[in-house]
Simulated scan of single mutants.
Amino acid sequence: MGIDITEMKDVQHRLSAFARVDSLTGLPNRAQLYERLGEALARSRRGASATACLFLDIDHFKSINDSLGHASGDEALREFGRRLQSSVRETDLVGRLAGDEFVIVLEGGEQPACAQAVAQKIIEAMRAPFFIAGAPLHASTSIGIAVSSGEDDDADGILRRADEALYAAKRAGRGGFATGCPH
């Protein structure tokens, strides 16, 4: 006697994938982001190379939701995610942390110069209007950059520093980026 468990295994595999992907944007979610960022930092320590973390959000996103409704806000988040993905290399990680907060992980390259070039590319990509419900919407992003600093880096630490840099970019006038201190 035997039981074919192929269908059950397929369902388990799909459920596992759903637990790691943001259902709105299709990007890696918080769980996958933390896992892959931790792996990138480990590779960085082993290879004596830097990993950069960019923390981004949509400037004045609440006003988009409030004035156009949540369906339009959702479409703005999807378009924002698409533009982020088109601004980075295929090997870079773009994930949605929560709400309108996104994170990009860049491995290799001369950091922070590479991260700053990517940040500038993203700012330019956001200049073109989003078309939400057939109407143009102008949105900008603020970006905080943190670069791994050695043995004591972990996902929480580098994300915290990138988030602090994001708020520095917002204080400087939004629509730009700031680079955080190593510690």
Rank of each mutant, 00 (worst) to 15 (best):
Q116A: 13
T179A: 14
V103Q: 15
G69E: 08
A42V: 13
G176L: 10
P182Q: 03
A19D: 07
F80W: 10
S148E: 03
T25A: 07
T141C: 05
Y167S: 00
M8T: 09
G173E: 04
S142I: 05
T179G: 01
A42H: 09
E110T: 15
K62A: 11
I158C: 10
G109Y: 12
L56S: 02
V147R: 10
D152P: 00
Q120P: 11
G38V: 01
I5M: 15
S142R: 06
R45K: 04
T141R: 05
R127Q: 12
A178R: 15
I3H: 08
G95H: 04
I158G: 04
A139Q: 14
D10S: 03
S16V: 08
V147F: 06
M126K: 11
D92H: 08
R36E: 14
I158Y: 09
G180A: 13
S72T: 00
E79D: 13
I132A: 04
L159D: 02
E164Q: 14
V88M: 02
E75D: 07
D92Y: 05
L15Y: 11
A146H: 06
L41I: 14
E151A: 05
Q32Y: 05
G180E: 13
V105S: 03
S148D: 05
G175D: 06
R89T: 01
H183M: 10
S72D: 12
A162K: 03
G69Y: 12
R83Y: 05
E79Y: 08
R30I: 04
F102D: 10
A76E: 08
E107C: 10
T91Y: 00
L15E: 10
E35D: 12
Q12H: 12
G109L: 15
S87E: 06
L37T: 01
A178L: 13
P129K: 14
A98M: 01
D156I: 03
E164Y: 11
D74F: 08
G26W: 07
E90R: 00
G47Q: 13
N29A: 06
V11L: 05
G2L: 07
H60S: 09
S87V: 03
D154N: 09
M8R: 15
S86Y: 00
D74G: 02
A133S: 01
R82Q: 14
S44D: 13
V118I: 14
L27C: 12
S49E: 09
A71D: 00
